[in-house]
Design a protein around this nucleic acid. Structure first.
Length: 318
DNA sequence: CGTATTTGACCGGCGC
DNA sequence: GCGCCGGTCAAATACG
């Protein structure tokens, strides 16, 4: 299991958006992305993730698992392993998962999401498996990007196609962890999906590696996703695509900051208040709250758009 | 028949 | 060294 000891500090950024079905319907051209309630195979539902795909998952994270299991420890150097369970989540979230509203996803079909993302630079890990490869080299992992999503479905649709290659029971959790790999032959991106034992309504998704190709959805309807800038999801698309390029550039020049996270559409789509007020059962919208945790200090110093979209109290890292 | 999922076995890392 | 555990493999199975 990876340790977060090396990760040190996490800087959390929170982004919340809300998703309404109507909006989703406007993007029928991007079926899978918004298909949160449809049943894929009868029992397996799919959620949507929109932005992630595109994230290109580049450099990130100490897995959320660590964050969850050792909540604050990552942020506070002297890790006093709180016997807590999910305090961390609560702590970092503007609205506690439970209380939060969202919890009660008003619409079944919809999904409220609370997302937390952790970022970490991990070393690349040689493929393990039957054949040992360079075992002398310290195991390295792909960069990871983890986040939590409040969702009823485990596997969030993110625009890419994934093939499940394993599932394991997780210690101290009644929920299994599923392992997925991008179906693209040349793409080695992997992702793990598991439900938080502390809050079953929360799905923890960890991406590892970066896509070497555009998402199927993007290639097929990129213009729709990017140009249509009136919804959080469209934002996600734009975000994702740009992020990919953005990160590639970053990797080359290793600099940069500019929390590109989210180029928000003019009118809304991002509504933090909904996150806190979503508690109201009568709410019709699905809420998505995404939290990003990045180890890049630079991202923190300059919040860029985040300054506008993220409530100060959400930026705890500061 | 091709593709995706399931699931038990296997492997390696890590803590004791 | 041993056992636990996370992660992956790959054969079997399911599905369209």
């Amino acid at each position: 299991m990876e340790k977060n000891s090396e990760t040190g500090n996490y800087n959390w950024m929170g982004v919340s958006t809300f998703f309404d079905h109507q909006m989703a319907s406007n993007y029928s051209s991007l079926p899978s992305i918004f298909d949160m309630s449809s049943n894929d195979h009868g029992d397996q539902q799919r959620g949507s993730l929109g932005f992630m795909d595109l994230l290109g998952i580049q450099d990130f994270s100490p897995s959320l698992f660590d964050m969850i299991q050792q909540p604050l420890s990552a942020q506070s150097p002297p890790p006093p392993p709180p016997p807590v369970s999910e305090t961390s989540e609560v702590t970092n979230l503007p609205a506690t998962p439970n209380s939060s509203s969202i919890s009660s996803s008003s619409n079944e079909a919809t999904t409220d999401e609370h997302v937390r993302v952790s970022e970490e630079k991990e070393q690349e890990k040689p493929k393990q498996g039957s054949k040992p490869k360079k075992k002398t080299e310290k195991r390295q992992r792909e960069q990871r990007f983890a986040f939590m999503t409040k969702s009823e479905v485990d596997h969030l649709e993110d625009g890419y196609r994934w093939r499940k290659y394993g599932q394991k029971a997780v210690k101290n959790s009644p929920f299994p962890r599923s392992y997925y790999r991008c179906t693209s032959a040349t793409c080695g991106v992997k992702k793990r999906v598991e439900r938080s034992s502390d809050d079953p309504s929360m799905v923890v998704t960890t991406y590892e590696g970066q896509h070497t190709h555009l998402s199927p959805v993007m290639s097929r309807g990129s213009s729709a996703g990017i140009s249509a800038g009136s919804g959080s999801f469209s934002t996600d698309f734009a975000f994702g695509s740009t992020m990919q390029n953005h990160y590639q550039q970053q990797q080359q020049q290793q600099q940069q900051q500019q929390p590109y996270f989210y180029s928000l559409p003019p009118n809304n789509s991002v509504n933090y208040s909904t996150t806190t007020t979503s508690t109201s059962p009568s709410h019709n919208l699905d809420h998505h709250e995404r939290r990003f945790c990045t180890s890049a200090a630079s991202l923190l110093t300059d919040h860029g758009l985040l300054q506008d979209i993220v409530p100060s109290d959400m930026r705890k890292d500061e």
